[in-house]
Write a protein that binds this DNA or RNA. Structure first.
Lengths: 344, 344
DNA sequence: AAAAAGTGTGCAATCGTTCCCAAAAACGTA
DNA sequence: TACGTTTTTGGGAACGATTGCACACTTTTT
């Protein structure tokens, strides 16, 4: 079960050189004669030499790999973010290791520690909806692991962060509902502890205030597990319906699709009467019935920006003291009236 | 930028033992006195010792990690497969590295070679729709890398494979369309070279034959890039419409959603008049309008089975000579008549 | 012509483990 | 007591790469 790959030693032996010389020729470092370099490179090419990244990692104490933690890859938003991350990472000769927390803080910690022990050079993480205690991340950070947060960020952690303009996205979506004549607008959202939850709630409230609509806390429902359990969502929807909302603003991808599903299942007769606006990056919204207004996050770009920041930290010569929080604008995609109408 | 973790050497020094002894105590191998073992384990626990997987990989020439190649993680089917793989891998102390081919054979090869150089212990792969030449996989396999194919498998490669019962799934879906009274049934499918394409086409043909409907090759459209380019899909749909199909059977996840989208975009007036049946593992089909009949693959289970087979290969004492191709049954989820009707 | 500076190469240590081999300790038996 | 056997431990060589240092050789400087 073992590979037969040629090593630097094999090359050295074959060419009658020392391993150091071969290494230098390959790495193109230090002064080395053009001639020997050419010979070595040619031979390396011939035997299809590939440096062993494991050995290099051990020696250099770094792995040229970046860890990514998201709650789920089966999520439009996150898979798009990951694609953005990959695009930058590959271009800069890093590769990525993806792990899923499944919205469990325990799983999250396990994954982070596993990645750390595999000598990742940096970590890109969106916190799980359960996560409260991030002290283990602080420890790792203090030990020298660069970390960049995206989407779901902690507020008591000084490092680079990349988020969407959650306040504005929520404000716009809520305002859109109001301008379409809705007055009893419910808000279905994620775990109360998440940064995105707070920011999106604030945007929702601000829009209500602008149009002098009273904020009713009973119209806000939190989902501790981010909609991972369908019962959680169905309960929330059930509790909202008695208030007869004419609009719902939903604050995350999974919740948005889950809510429509729950609505259709529990009360198909009202499902089409409630206007829905929600965060989602699903490319399939055009197919949904009832249709909805969606807030799209610049997911791909978010992944790119986060990765650029992380790599800059990794490759920084001196410790970084100034951190940025990049805020990217969301896009409001208004419901298309005729979509979902079977007679068109 | 470096971690301060304690090594086996540190423990040895602190306890006045040799590294060999400490290693043995930790690994629980060879004969070692209960007493020293206890002391070592206690101290290791105290300093929170974590073995360095990189060093171990180098020494043991294995990494306890499994490579996964799919065309895209932003695909319901594949993300579910990956979840199945993770579940088994983690339980058996392996971890997974995911890479995407984006349906490009070049990217696929690059990824595979990168994973191989990172000393993965085995590879789980679904071929890209572009892939024709798998000689590089054969090379790796011959050099000792265990490979298990799933979903899209080559026929000229002797190893374990896990696939869905594509013939039956297609047969059932096509038959369902026929039984709902459709007679001009088009077939939109993937690249002609893929195993799944051939099998699903055969199922489609068989169903037609059973009901004495002539097979018309012009009603079959292939998408070389698996629907990665929306133009490709729109063209295919446009070419099909003149034949006035009353039903379409679509053979992959991305194509199914993409086709409905294209249909709605190009000819909203007929979109709801054509009955659609297609392979998809989207959890959102209930929201789609027009609604459709879907063929669901046991994705999670497929991932589990493939991973179990792979790990059995990795851990096999002697070379394996008998290979199996596991075939898992699909499930037909019939269209719900009232779904998609805004007046219900 | 000798000293200084510059080039190209090899030696050997190192990263953190594992494991072969041998030495030491403990025990048993004659 | 002497010797063999078993158990436990330590020494040290790998695994494949990088790199500081020393050394040889060439070229330049004085």
């Amino acid at each position: 079960m073992r590979f037969e790959t040629s090593t630097i030693k094999d090359i050295a032996k074959a060419l009658g050189l020392s391993t150091s010389t071969v290494s230098r020729a390959l790495r193109d470092r230090y002064e080395i004669s053009e001639e020997t370099k050419k010979v070595v490179l040619a031979y390396a090419e011939k035997v299809n030499y590939r440096a062993n990244p494991i050995a290099r990692s051990l020696k250099e104490r770094r792995s040229y790999s970046i860890g990514i933690i998201v709650s789920e890859i089966a999520n439009n938003f996150f898979s798009q973010v990951i694609n953005g991350m990959e695009s930058i990472a590959y271009a800069r000769d890093y590769h990525v290791i993806i792990a899923q927390s499944h919205e469990s803080s325990k799983q999250e910690k396990l994954n982070v520690e596993h990645l750390a022990s595999r000598s990742i050079d940096g970590l890109l993480i969106a916190l799980s909806s359960e996560t409260q205690d991030i002290s283990y991340l602080k420890d790792l950070y203090q030990k020298g692991l660069p970390i960049v947060f995206f989407d779901r960020v902690p507020d008591n952690f000084e490092t680079h962060k990349v988020i969407a303009n959650n306040f504005k996205g929520s404000f716009d979506a809520t305002e859109h509902l109001i301008l379409s004549g809705k007055r009893t607008i419910a808000h279905l959202t994620n775990s109360e502890t998440l940064s995105i939850t707070k920011e999106r709630l604030a945007g929702y409230k601000a829009a209500l205030a602008k149009y002098h609509i009273n904020f009713n806390p009973e119209l806000v429902k939190y989902c501790q597990h981010g909609g991972m359990h369908s019962a959680e969502l169905e309960d929330a929807v059930k509790e909202l319906l008695p208030f007869k909302p004419d609009g719902i603003f939903i604050s995350s991808d999974r919740l948005t699709t889950g809510c429509i599903m729950a609505l259709k299942k529990s009360s198909p007769e009202v499902a089409h009467k409630i206007a829905i606006a929600g965060f989602t990056n699903s490319s399939l919204v055009d197919l949904f019935s009832p249709s909805l207004t969606s807030v799209k996050q610049p997911a791909f770009e978010m992944g790119q920006v986060a990765t650029e920041l992380l790599i800059s930290m990794i490759e920084a010569k001196r410790p970084i003291t100034e951190f940025e929080t990049k805020v990217l604008d969301t896009e409001l995609v208004r419901m298309q009236k005729n979509v979902g109408n079977p007679f068109l």
